[in-house]
Design a protein around this nucleic acid. Sequence first.
DNA 1: CAACAAACGAGAGCACTGCTCTTGTTCTTT
DNA 2: AAAGAACAAGAGCAGTGCTCTCGTTTGTTG
Lengths: 231, 231
Amino acid sequence: MPTAPSTARATARAELTRAILDNASTQLAEVGPAALSVRAIARDLGMASSAVYRYFPSRDALLTALLVEAYDDLGAAVEAADAGVRRGDLRGRLRAIARALRSWAIAHPHQYALAYGSPVPGYAAPQDTVGPARRVPLVLISLLGDAQQSGRRPRGPDRVPAAEKAALAPVLAFVDPPLSPAYGVRGLGVWSALFGHVSLELFGHMHRGVLDPEAHFAAVVDQHAVDLGLT
Amino acid sequence: MPTAPSTARATARAELTRAILDNASTQLAEVGPAALSVRAIARDLGMASSAVYRYFPSRDALLTALLVEAYDDLGAAVEAADAGVRRGDLRGRLRAIARALRSWAIAHPHQYALAYGSPVPGYAAPQDTVGPARRVPLVLISLLGDAQQSGRRPRGPDRVPAAEKAALAPVLAFVDPPLSPAYGVRGLGVWSALFGHVSLELFGHMHRGVLDPEAHFAAVVDQHAVDLGLT
DNA sequence: CAACAAACGAGAGCACTGCTCTTGTTCTTT
DNA sequence: AAAGAACAAGAGCAGTGCTCTCGTTTGTTG
């Protein structure tokens, strides 16, 4: 980010880029990623569709920008939820994090689908998405780090195979001091379970078997807190 | 399914329907659901694109047929895996089921994305998809039913809130005698965790933190077996 | 200040999509 | 054998992402 060059053209460009992004975000929220149309955005903004390409080289680039926005928005929501709970109340923090994730997903289903649904085949996440994408996992890992620091241990696994220890190396090192392999297994398991629940619920796989997904989610999260030794 | 009327036209129709579906399936496997093109299928089959609409009223209808196919294929794979293990070896069965799910998803990423990725907004699953979609959950529930019958109990939750008990009513009744609420909570949690892992892995959210997803998956599944009291 | 160059907006156009309608043919049934 | 339904093909419509060209505006440089 260069510090606003303040030439009329540069500010106009920044404003129009923002306007396009805002309009795209609105359209995304309404019709979803698949139906997002560059031409429709241009029409909304009263400009030629070709002009949009001066600001975003392709529809994919626009979607990538929206993806970053989604990751950041969700990340901020989860971080805020975690920050709203007393540090020592580990179960309360997990509950808050999980609730924030699910609430955000329900409030922004299309953004969630963009971020965690099926990507377009062959889509390689550009470098500028990995930072924002890491925010939610980082909150979770920090929580586990705090739990470990306060002497807690997960309820199993008692022994972690060497292959698995090596496999988890990167994620264990996200926090200092590094997470124990047992917390790594459990933590990633909880991460998968949380996103799995939200995806299954949001994508319509749960409504036939579970009448009250919110109550069920709460029950599962509490069980995770027990499994993680947070209680 | 009417028993083959054997008129030349009827058999021709059946054959062409099958040919379209096969071609669509191939194309789906290659380019994914988003890029599936009715016109491309017609070109491949040497017919006018309008002719395809005599067999499938819309692209959505074709995708629905492919969706049923995917559910059935995955369901069959999981059922076969479960059937290949001695009934009493509950942990072995869970391992086999989980492995079959993940293997199938990796072998058929686009089919998996069609079934468990983000649906097109407003897509209401037609009635003929719910049967096939239920096959995997049913295998899992049957396994838990067997575990319960043999006197096992999950490691928590010890108490299930009334709201949650009511919420799970439908899924508990899928098997006879009905599943205990505790097994319901745990079972759905495992279901979410399995699909959550596969989705996160397949959609590219795991490769930066986990070097060997297979080893990690195995470790998580084994922990689930413990949590479910299968060991 | 003048000249050059870069950035820009608009419009036409290409190749593609899903889908509909019409026209002429083929097969089934009465 | 006649009537009617099913069918294949083609043209056409409305929409898409994206590119190219052509004037115009803006910023930088001699």
